[in-house]
Amino acid sequence: DENEERIRAFALYKGIDPEKARELWERGEINKDDEEKAWREYK
């Protein structure tokens, strides 16, 4: 689903483990601007 892809995109963008990215996502600790930037680059 799209959230999974967004988490993966963010992990790649930040160079972090996707599981770590998922934890940040679930806790609401992902910066929305960074997340959008990562998503645009990923697509």
Rank of each mutant, 00 (worst) to 15 (best):
D1I: 11
D1S: 12
D1N: 12
D1E: 11
D1V: 12
E2D: 13
E2Q: 11
E2M: 13
E2L: 13
E2I: 13
E2R: 11
E2C: 15
N3T: 15
N3S: 14
N3K: 15
E4A: 12
E4L: 10
E4M: 11
E4I: 08
E4N: 09
E4Y: 09
E5F: 06
E5D: 09
E5L: 11
E5Y: 06
E5N: 06
R6M: 09
R6L: 11
R6Y: 06
R6I: 08
R6A: 04
R6S: 03
R6W: 13
I7A: 01
I7C: 12
I7Y: 05
I7P: 00
I7R: 01
I7Q: 01
I7L: 08
R8F: 14
R8S: 03
R8W: 14
R8L: 14
A9D: 03
A9K: 06
A9M: 05
A9N: 04
A9W: 08
F10D: 05
F10G: 03
F10Q: 03
A11R: 00
A11G: 03
A11Q: 02
A11L: 01
A11F: 01
L12K: 14
L12H: 14
L12G: 04
Y13R: 02
Y13D: 03
Y13K: 02
Y13A: 06
Y13H: 06
K14M: 15
K14N: 08
K14W: 15
K14S: 11
K14D: 01
G15R: 05
G15D: 07
I16E: 00
I16C: 06
I16Y: 03
I16S: 00
I16H: 00
I16V: 06
D17S: 15
D17A: 12
D17M: 07
D17Y: 03
D17T: 15
D17G: 07
P18C: 15
P18A: 10
P18Y: 15
P18D: 08
E19Q: 12
E19P: 03
E19T: 09
K20P: 01
K20A: 14
K20T: 14
K20E: 14
K20V: 14
K20F: 13
A21C: 10
A21I: 03
A21F: 02
A21P: 00
R22M: 04
R22Q: 05
E23F: 07
E23G: 06
E23D: 10
L24E: 02
L24D: 00
L24V: 03
L24Q: 05
W25I: 10
W25Y: 14
W25V: 04
W25L: 09
W25H: 06
W25M: 07
W25S: 02
E26S: 09
E26F: 11
E26K: 09
E26Q: 11
R27H: 08
R27G: 07
R27S: 11
R27D: 04
R27V: 04
R27Y: 04
R27F: 04
G28L: 03
G28W: 01
G28M: 04
G28F: 03
G28E: 04
E29M: 12
E29K: 07
E29V: 07
I30R: 02
I30H: 03
N31H: 08
N31E: 10
N31L: 09
K32G: 07
K32E: 11
K32V: 10
D33M: 09
D33S: 08
D33G: 08
D33L: 09
D33H: 08
D33Y: 09
D34K: 01
D34P: 01
D34M: 07
D34S: 03
D34N: 02
E35Y: 15
E35T: 10
E35Q: 12
E35I: 15
E36S: 06
E36K: 05
E36R: 04
K37D: 08
K37P: 02
K37S: 08
K37C: 14
A38T: 02
A38S: 11
A38H: 03
A38Q: 03
A38E: 02
W39P: 01
W39F: 06
W39C: 06
W39R: 04
W39H: 03
W39E: 04
R40C: 14
R40V: 10
R40I: 12
R40P: 02
R40K: 13
R40N: 13
R40D: 11
R40E: 13
R40M: 13
E41T: 08
E41C: 15
E41W: 15
Y42M: 05
Y42I: 04
Y42H: 04
Y42D: 03
Y42A: 06
K43P: 07
K43W: 12
K43T: 13
K43A: 09
K43H: 13
K43Q: 12
